[in-house]
Write a protein that binds this DNA or RNA. Structure first.
Length: 626
RNA sequence: GCCGCUGUGGCUUAGAGGUAUAGCGAUUCCUUGGUAAGGAAUAGGUCGUGGGUUCAAUUCCCACCAGCGGCUCCA
């Protein structure tokens, strides 16, 4: 990036005409700024490598000069002619906009002349020795080596180990991973960011084929559409997590999805990551879409009167949605999204002892939530991240966590605390492509109680800031679905039949009448199945299409329907049924009465959320979404 | 965001500088069928979007969009 800085009595310009095909929209055709540091800028190719760094470097440079000159006003003036190696207009525009934003944050009075237009301008240069300066900015630039070494230093101060149940710490390279293949994949994925297999994520085809979710080209990347079956599955998982958190004592709240970028508490936190948010404007205020539920809950807690008796105070929200503008190249199916549903339960505690007690409770909660949803202990690998000090002082506590999980974990320790938390656990799912993604997590945060000025009155009458635990007991709901599908994809690869857990299957029982005349009998059976004896909803439907029985069975199988019942004269006469169970372990015997079947299903799903069939009862009335 | 690959009816796909192939699905008809695809006919496509080259572009070139792979990132 080339900068030409001119300390001027005034600068004024007037827009004349387009210089590129799609210039920036303009609000002001002409403008003027007195006593201004005018900054002529050309954004170059090498800025595109790290636009963010370019902005930060330029901001620092301009700030330095402005302070020397005691200039309060800054005019940013795009000026392509400074360089023969210009960057792409779109990026250049973004860089200028961000630069304006950064400078405004530093409390300068900033104006920016529009990008992509020919402009007439008048400038009056003060002419003193410092009034004309040129600068060449290479993002990271001369500091590149330094920041590289800084990075290395940080890497050096982060140690990766395997921690076993006996409390032994092992080097990753020397650890015998026999029987812990996924932990090996996960460890190397985390440490080296390397993986062996390269293929498209298996769940993408499945989510489409099963009509769960799909891409929506009319939206931004990472914003999915959910078909009836997908919404249904999502809804049940959401309900399940909600209930478990309620049992744990979480107080469910609802908070806004957008927040003022200039809010004093939030803006500091945000400044580090402004490019990663969705931003929207309302009147003259700028808002960002939340990337977690923390803000709303912290602001709520800030205004609350809290006694030590109320601790731990557990606030909970299932965010629909949280937004993160992940890099476009990072988006993949349901694994990584820009809009996602996130259960987020915070616990405010008085001190570290209470934090650690609570941490254990939530650890068990997370493990149990995942397990009951269908992600077993074998499917996840645990990572624990902490500081060296915390580890040294709390070895017993940490080893106890490993024992609770019952298998070795990956541990990362830092010499110094880098983030706002001192301890964090994650349960990671390792998929078919050896990629690891975090599901459940909990963290002990020692910064934000103070930052948000959340206070509780302790026994001694003194007001104190609580420590805050951040937990997502299941991880993003979309990601849970991703994990369930990937898990089934792995099964398919082994030649086993894939299926969703019975409680999550949109259709649990499919009735296949051998002739049209049996359709009404199927309807009666379904009614009978749902007679309220067990208080459980059994979701059954009827394939009344004009197809052969073979075809209907085949379609039910490809739809992963767990139980199929063919209905004809035999069934009507004997009043007994020969179910086709997708999960062969589920079958105890060959024939069942309707009551026995009802009991068997109820037994399996009674502890889970119940809801009605999300599709028409009759297959002939259904729509094909995919 | 960067580099590379891909983009043909709802889905899967053949193909080529002269507006396009098949299967599934849909519709209609025949078949009333007992545990993974019964048969026939009909309809359905400005070949991702926008420019350029050409007598002619869906095909060649450029840009953009989307998806995938890799990198980076993941508070």
């Amino acid at each position: 990036m080339k900068l030409l800085l001119i300390h001027s009595d005034y600068i004024e310009y007037e827009v004349k005409g387009k210089a590129i095909s799609n210039p920036e929209e303009i609000s002001l055709k002409k403008d003027r700024l007195e006593e201004a540091l005018t900054v002529f800028i050309a954004v170059e190719k090498n800025d595109e490598k790290s636009p963010r760094q370019a902005v930060l470097d330029a901001t620092a440079e301009i700030e330095k000069t402005a302070e020397q000159l005691k200039a309060k006003n800054i005019m940013i003036y795009p000026y392509a002619h400074l360089s023969s190696d210009l960057g792409r207009p779109k990026i250049a525009k973004e860089i200028l906009v961000e630069l304006e934003y950064e400078l405004k944050n530093k409390d300068f009075n900033v104006k920016r002349s529009p990008f992509g237009w020919y402009k007439a301008f008048k400038i009056s240069c003060k002419g003193h020795p410092l009034s004309e300066l040129s600068r060449d900015i290479v993002p990271g630039g001369k500091n590149e080596e330094e920041s590289e070494s800084l990075k290395k230093e940080r890497k050096l101060s982060s140690y990766w180990n395997i921690l076993t149940e006996d409390g032994e710490l092992h080097e990753i390279d020397n650890f015998n991973f026999k029987g812990h293949e996924n932990l090996k994949k996960f460890s190397f994925y985390e440490k080296e960011k390397s993986r062996a297999i390269k293929q498209e994520p298996a769940h993408v085809k499945l989510m489409q084929k099963l009509e769960i979710a799909d891409y929506e080209p009319a939206s931004d990347g990472g914003n999915m559409r959910f078909y009836p079956k997908g919404r249904f599955i999502k809804k049940l998982i959401e309900q399940y997590v909600n209930r478990r958190v309620a049992e744990y004592g979480g107080l469910e709240v609802e908070t806004p999805i957008m927040y003022d970028m200039d809010h004093p508490t939030l803006s500091k936190y945000l400044q580090r990551f402004p490019a990663r948010q969705y931003q929207i404007e309302s009147d003259k205020r700028r808002f960002f879409l939340r990337f977690a539920a923390c803000f709303g809950q912290f602001l709520m807690a800030h205004d609350a009167t809290i006694s030590y008796k109320a601790l731990p105070l557990k606030l909970y929200e299932l965010t629909k949605y949280s937004f993160r503008r992940e890099q476009s190249g990072e988006l993949a199916g349901l694994r990584r999204l820009r809009a996602f549903t996130m259960p987020d339960v915070h616990a405010m505690v008085s001190d570290l002892d209470m934090a650690m007690d609570e941490f254990k409770v939530r650890f068990d909660l997370s493990l149990s939530v995942l397990k009951n949803i269908g992600i077993q202990n074998d499917d996840i690998e645990m990572a624990l991240r902490t500081t060296k000090d915390f580890y040294e002082e709390n070895k017993e506590f940490i080893v106890d966590l490993v024992k609770r999980l019952g298998k070795p974990i990956l541990m990362e320790t830092w010499d110094e605390r880098i983030f706002y938390f001192i301890l964090k656990f994650e349960f990671n799912f390792v998929d078919m492509s050896d990629k690891a993604s975090a599901l459940s997590t909990d963290q002990i945060d020692i910064e934000n109680g103070e930052r948000y000025d959340i206070k509780f009155t302790d026994k001694d009458g003194v007001q104190k800031h609580p420590l805050i635990l951040h937990c997502s007991p299941s991880g993003a709901i979309e990601r849970v679905i991703y994990a369930l599908l990937e898990k089934e994809a792995i099964k398919m690869q082994k030649g086993q039949k894939p299926m969703l857990p019975l409680w999550l299957s949109p259709t649990q029982v499919r009735f296949v009448p051998v002739k049209d005349e049996f359709v009404s009998d199927c309807e009666k059976f379904i009614e009978e199945l749902n007679s309220s004896k067990y208080g459980v909803i059994i979701r059954a439907d009827i394939d009344d299409r004009e197809e052969s029985v073979g075809k209907k069975i085949r379609d039910a199988e490809t739809e992963w329907v767990p139980i199929i019942l063919v209905i004809g004269d035999k069934e009507l006469e004997s009043n007994s049924f020969t179910p086709r169970f997708r999960d062969t372990n589920f079958a105890e015997k060959k024939t069942y009465s309707l009551d026995e079947l009802k009991e068997k299903i109820s037994e399996n799903v009674k502890d889970y959320p119940q809801d009605l069939l999300p599709l028409p009862l009759h297959m002939s009335k259904r729509v094909k979404f995919k």
